[in-house]
Design a protein around this nucleic acid. Sequence first.
RNA 1: GGAGGCGUGGUGUAGAGGCCUAACACGCUGCCCUGUCAAGGCAGAGAUCGCGGGUUCGAAUCCCGUCGCUUCCGCCA
Length: 599
Amino acid sequence: MHYKTHTCGELRLEHAGQTVTLAGWVHRRRDHGGVIFVDLRDRFGITQVVFNPAHLSAETFALAESLRNEYVIQVVGDVVKRPEGMANPKLATGEIEVVANKLTVLNPSKTPPFVINDDTQELDEALRLRYRYLDLRRERMMRNLIIRHRFVKFIRDYLDARGFIEVETPILFKSTPEGAREYLVPSRLHPGRFYALPQSPQQLKQLLMVAGVERYFQIARCFRDEDQRADRQPEFTQLDMEMSFVDQNDVLEVVEGLLTAFTEQFAELHGKHLMFKPFPRLSYEEVMERFGRDKPDLRYGMELFDVSAAMRGTSFAPFQAAHVKGLVAPGCAHFTRRQTDELTEFAKRNGARGLVVLWHDADGYRASGAGAKLSDAEKQAIMRISGSKPGDLVLLAADDDRMKLNEALGELRHELGLRLKLGDPDALAFAWIVDFPMFSYDETEKRWVANHHLFTAPRDEDLEFLETDPARVRGKQYDLVCNGYEVAGGSIRIHRRDVQERVMRLLGLSMEEAYQKFGHMLEAFEYGAPPHGGIAPGIDRLTMLYAGAPNLREVIAFPKNQQAADTMLGIPSPVSEKQLQELHIRIVTEEEALERLTK
RNA sequence: GGAGGCGUGGUGUAGAGGCCUAACACGCUGCCCUGUCAAGGCAGAGAUCGCGGGUUCGAAUCCCGUCGCUUCCGCCA
């Protein structure tokens, strides 16, 4: 027996005259005394059901009167064209209605803690998460789930058609020394030993390349025990990919092709469009100079400008530094001193020494503050180079450390972009960031550290600087950014033993240590590892962008809150003494733990 | 670990030392109503203002502490 012959989203004029059975939730009920309308909802849509006493027994009509929101019901009725002028253009099924002649209440419902049939109202998220199964019933959340499904389905089809195969890798993995904090899983069979949940299948996918898979992908769950952000969850999903016999360009083209195709083919679903086609490729150096951030929001300009040369020899003390740069906040000349002070504070928090503000009025820069102290020639130079116009606000900063200056202004640019809503909410500004510096010097530990991971290949032309000038070595490493988010990151890997050894030597890693930590990798690489590389786009972040959602929780069915907890499930939860015993685990207080450590 | 924001009937908000016997909208309950689709009308129930302490003649309102949620910094090879 089937509960329904049709979904609540599929009936049209052509079905008029048919007798159908529908089942779903009471979305809304309009009781006119004599006639009752019920908007019946299932995942596929909403259909108006009419209960008319003329066509019903008294008992059935009474039952219809007892219906409340979110009751689960089944209705048998006739599809009829709505009377003239009564069609509802807001509903896909709005030309017809179902005149009920039989009603079954499959399950009543308590009054929900919040309304399901209106998702325009903002709700306390703690409440939503506590009743996530109700929250997900709301149209917006259901739509997000559908966008995510379409995206993942598209990925599988797209990559399958291009010779990729999906291979699953273990969730019970190995604790790795570097990188993010891991979730540990105690072993029952091996007292005192642990599995670790993977931060990503990085090493395993490289081993799959050694295995000859050549084109691998996986919709892979990853785990990181770090503090949460709006765009960071303790468990998240990556499109993990790796390819053999490829260079950087091959990897970029596959991902760019996939995202371009999905964006364009499903424009009607998500309503977003590409800002750039093809995606621009910017070097790390260029992006830091122009935007001050390695994940810039490119939906708007507001680029940093450089007036260092023009300010050389200035008598204005704040600009007596090696580098003077700034940006133009369009149409912000109305900002009050209080507002610009706030921006100055923001810039300082992000490493700027201060912020110099110029108000561009109808007749040039206002003669107050810096505007009074800079010479006319200096002001003219700033106006020419910045291109500021009357009504704009010019913000400048100076520093001897150029990268620090870029970063401070970059964060300021990003903040202003958000506040002024400069980005088109329907645009996706994808861009590749390439040629990242491979190493940076850790001042506190007095040693070179890898910016990505130690299997990242250096650019061929930079190999010669590996020993002489490590800061100059750029990697075959790339990020995909979109609207201010990093949405993918990857690299071409080292496949030659000699290069790998040189990198490890630079990082102060002896072969002995390296074998201890990564022996399984190094050993595998000695059995004919092909040249290979890969990338891992973040499924959650991309879905968030397609859904136009403000955080990851909106596109994850059952997310964790900021404390990495789930209040609906009540996790993390305590476990029984017996379970702990089996796992050879004893809970100790912080004091006891400290005591053991110091002994 | 640190900084900011928020916490008032079921939900979303208003209130900023006495106007509060806490208001409004939605929801909920009952009654009326045969063409609505955010239905409409009438009536009603529902809040120890997150919690604890303090200041004051008087606290939702001010102060201190605490808890919860959230955003950001640190952290995320």
